[in-house]
Design a protein around this nucleic acid. Structure first.
Lengths: 342, 342
DNA sequence: TTGAAAGCGCTAACAT
DNA sequence: ATGTTAGCGCTTTCAA
């Protein structure tokens, strides 16, 4: 590799500026600015000359300078857990659409469920002066955001509530959804029902167990501690958890899966048994209809849209008190949740 | 709504700057800059005083100003078709991981397969002076990017080649993958095989039909035009296309689905028949193993990672000639592609 | 070790 | 209709 070129040779600095365009077109700087921004007060002829210079030089406005002057970046930050998780695709897209409608771009990052990384990401976004922030919390202490919120950075927490800070929050009704899903199993005759979910430090996870317990209590059923398994949702752990509750001294006849990743693994494990126990999963999954998986679906696009709408409401000047929205879930019966106990 | 507050009251402008921090700490501006950026040449004592002022004021460096001076934003733009498509989740995430390893943030947008929107997005990213750009092309003419490429904005095209512009390109081997998939059906005894794919203007779509035709020709089979259907991949069109080729005068005994969306619909349609025709789909799908769907899988995370690596290679000063990489696909046999003809 | 001055490219405010 | 000047908040350069 003949790498004779100096490191920064081809980088910025050689990009034309408005000043260059002005010189070439033989007009003043401000006239170029007017043309670039479509402001009035430029004759058609001047406008044409400027436009020619712009095209000839390949000029593009430098938004860093513009932002520095205007104070608004027209961008919003989205910090989620994992962009690759199918739950977050539609959510991101919905946020993006709302942002687009408001002329804003989306900057997003994955926290990988690591509070430290969440904070780094959020602060990096704040340094870039995003106008607003949508955060799916990984950590449980967001006081580091106080200066930003005070400074008027619109902030919305999604999927889980914020820690120690007041802000708009958009959630799915995890408690109610789980309760309904478990009640559905009970209604189909099950008495010994297992719950496999995420680590209890995650708000949605603990809410869903709470829903499970409530449904059991509602029906006057006692929930054996051996039927509840909370922890990481990697296939290995979920598999052994499910197998354990199917083979214990008081084996369950049905399983409630706490999220999409758990459901996927649970489906695999249950499919291996000749008479598969019943299953209801939280979160819908693609092709779940073909597999006949009964789920409690949350509308992740609606969650994203709602959050973005709250965000822009604030950016548009609203000073409403921090709101907490819980979107309803939908039980979709497809077969796996209606199988009777063995 | 008592909206007495003026519109911009709580927005920027009231954020502390380095100057404010300097005043409060009783030091010079440059000393604050040194502390904020961890540069040497500050005594421990001075550093502490500055840090206290920073914390007290809730100061965050304004990266817009920094960027304006330094010329690099440490951000890369990713323009894809639809963030909500499961194919792009892992791809985005892989790009993000590589970017993160290089200290860069990811700005991304969905073109919705609209060339106009692609260009708007790309130019908005250029105005923000992203250091690099990863684009899944919607349009077929990218000459509008010439000024940027000339100015040293690293650019990588993904999934489809660029139009009329020289740049690094990372693709999956659509032709080879489709050819292999169709050959697989032929090897299992099929002679009348249908192909349902996306609009032929999309590069991957036409490559895949080409692979289909090549496989048929390789086997000395003639491909009836009625067996090939290209167009939008919404469920309605795909459904009627599949049904048409199953009920025509020379009905197919197997279907090759050109992408994940087509596969999903095809699975549904075929499942309705008592003796389902064989099926191979391009792109893997979650739970495809449980449904026994044979696919030609492309590794979207690898595509994203490779693209990002090329991008940062250029950002790190490489001046290699524009490369074109084709990543291999993998045929995964799971049952649907091994069913013999009726 | 520390700081003062210049300037990155743009827009706001004010001439002309 | 058009141009001039100041300055956004930071980093670079150079001097103390």
């Amino acid at each position: 590799m003949a790498q004779t070129a100096r490191h920064s040779e081809t980088r910025y600095g050689n990009r034309p500026t408005m000043k260059d365009v002005a010189a070439r077109a033989g007009v003043g700087l401000k006239t170029v600015s007017r043309v670039v921004n479509g402001e009035p007060g430029v004759t058609a002829d001047t406008g044409r000359r400027v436009q020619e210079a712009i095209d000839a030089l390949g000029f593009r406005r430098n938004d860093s300078a513009r932002v520095l002057r205007k104070g608004r970046t027209s961008s919003v930050g989205l910090v989620l857990e994992d962009l690759a998780d199918p739950f977050y695709g539609p959510l991101s897209r919905a946020v993006e659409e709302v942002a687009r409608a408001h002329g804003a771009l989306l900057i997003n990052g994955s926290s990988a469920e690591d509070p430290q990384r969440e904070q780094e990401l959020v602060l990096a976004l704040c340094a870039r002066r995003v106008d607003g922030l949508i955060v799916i919390p990984a950590g449980d202490d967001h006081r580091y955001l106080e200066p930003e919120i005070k400074a008027g950075v619109a902030t919305v927490f999604v999927d889980r509530p914020a820690g120690r800070v007041e802000a708009d929050t958009v959630l799915s009704d995890s408690f109610g959804g789980a309760r309904e899903g478990v009640a559905h199993l009970i209604a189909h005759g099950h008495r010994r029902i297992g719950f496999v979910g995420d680590r209890p430090a995650i708000h949605t996870a603990s809410e869903r167990v709470r829903g499970y317990r409530a449904a059991m209590a509602d029906a006057g059923l006692e929930a054996d501690p051996a039927w509840v398994s909370l922890g990481p949702t990697d296939p290995g752990r979920v598999r052994s958890a499910v197998e354990a509750m199917l083979t214990g001294p008081r084996p369950v006849t049905a399983v409630f899966a706490g999220n999409n990743r758990v459901t996927v693994t649970a489906v695999r494990v249950l499919a291996e048994r000749e008479r598969p126990p019943a299953l209801v999963g939280f979160d819908d999954i693609e092709l779940a209809d073909l597999l006949g998986i009964t789920v409690v679906a949350q509308d992740s696009a609606a969650v994203g849209r709602t959050a973005a709408e709250y965000l822009f409401r604030r950016l548009d000047g609203s000073h409403h008190a921090p709101a907490r929205v819980e979107l309803p879930t939908t039980l979709i019966a497809r077969g796996s949740g209606e199988r009777p106990p063995a």
